[in-house]
Amino acid sequence: MKCALVTGGSRGIGSAICKKLASDSEYYILINYQSNQAAAEQTLEEIKNLGGKGEIIKFNVADAEDVKSALSQWQEANPEALVEVIVNNAGITKDGLFMWMSSEDWTSVVNTSLNGFFNVTNFFIQKMLRNKYGRIVNMVSVSGVKGTPGQTNYSAAKGAVVAATKALAQEVAKRNITVNAVAPGFIRTDMTGNLDEKELIKMIPVNRFGEAEEVAELVSFLASRKASYITGEVININGGIYS
């Protein structure tokens, strides 16, 4: 059984990626979630409606022990399963000016994006290397590429994942494993729901927010065999806001 794991796959961009991978490929989709079980089950239901297969798997990407325990149990229960695609999508924001930022707001945001990338990818990387095939797609952000005021913690976390993407890509390329990052701009999701869309649109050359499905199209391509000569790249998908 060949599988694709999407962290933070229950809602928003993560959910759109799960559905797109299900419709574009034969992969069995592992939908990771941390707290919103109803949303994860809804995504799984939609995958089944598309003719796909999958399951939900609960763990907190930032908690190394939780990740190891959940994934080890899953692997033991599915000894024949092979995770060929990892989409590191889980992320949180705790925005605020740096001078008023609490240690907890810094640490939790960095742990989720950066340590989450390590905890999940590190669990599977040796198996991918032995199998001589893999696709790793790291969801970063325009914040991690250009920096966004009020998001020093999020920019730091995502910027670190950008650098890790470039380094890991070089380590594993000979084994037919690609590692790329996708940097969305303003995408219409729960996470951007409280932003002032009318104001922000003025900054975006294409004059609108993006849709989660548009991001999912790009991720699905990078996760496919068609993208085998693209690695170590950061691809911006932001309506021309920054390049």
Rank of each mutant, 00 (worst) to 15 (best):
M1K: 08
M1G: 14
A4D: 06
L5I: 03
L5N: 02
V6H: 07
G8T: 03
G9C: 07
I13G: 13
S15Y: 15
A16D: 14
A22P: 13
A22N: 03
D24C: 05
S25C: 11
S25D: 06
E26N: 15
Y27K: 13
Y33L: 02
N36I: 03
Q37P: 03
A38N: 00
A38Y: 11
E41T: 08
Q42K: 00
L44S: 07
I47C: 14
K48Y: 04
N49Q: 14
G51M: 02
G52Y: 03
K53H: 07
I56S: 08
I57C: 07
K58Q: 04
N60S: 14
D63K: 01
D63R: 15
E65D: 15
D66E: 06
A70M: 09
A70G: 12
S72K: 00
Q73T: 01
Q73D: 12
E76N: 08
N78D: 06
E80C: 10
L82S: 15
V83Q: 05
V85P: 01
N88Q: 11
N89K: 04
A90T: 02
I92Q: 08
I92W: 12
T93E: 15
D95Q: 05
G96M: 13
L97P: 15
F98E: 09
M99D: 04
M101K: 04
M101Q: 12
W106K: 13
T107Q: 13
T107W: 11
S108L: 12
N111I: 05
T112Y: 13
T112W: 09
G116Y: 12
F117V: 07
F118L: 06
N119R: 06
V120P: 01
I125G: 04
M128H: 14
L129T: 11
L129W: 08
K132C: 08
K132Q: 10
I136N: 04
N138V: 02
M139A: 05
V145Y: 12
K146M: 03
G147Y: 03
T148H: 12
G150D: 09
Q151R: 15
T152L: 13
Y154W: 09
A160H: 00
A164T: 09
A164Q: 05
T165Y: 05
K166F: 10
A167L: 01
E171W: 10
E171T: 06
R175F: 05
I177T: 11
N180Y: 06
A181H: 03
A183Y: 01
P184R: 14
G185Y: 10
F186L: 13
R188Y: 08
R188N: 15
R188K: 15
R188L: 12
D190P: 02
N194F: 04
N194D: 11
D196S: 04
K198H: 14
E199L: 07
L200I: 02
V206K: 02
N207F: 13
R208G: 12
G210Q: 08
E211Q: 10
E213G: 15
E214R: 04
E214Q: 01
A216D: 07
L218Q: 06
S220C: 06
S228Q: 11
S228W: 14
I230G: 00
G232H: 05
V234D: 02
V234M: 10
I235G: 02
I237H: 10
G239D: 04
G240A: 07
G240W: 14
G240C: 02
I241Q: 13
I241F: 06
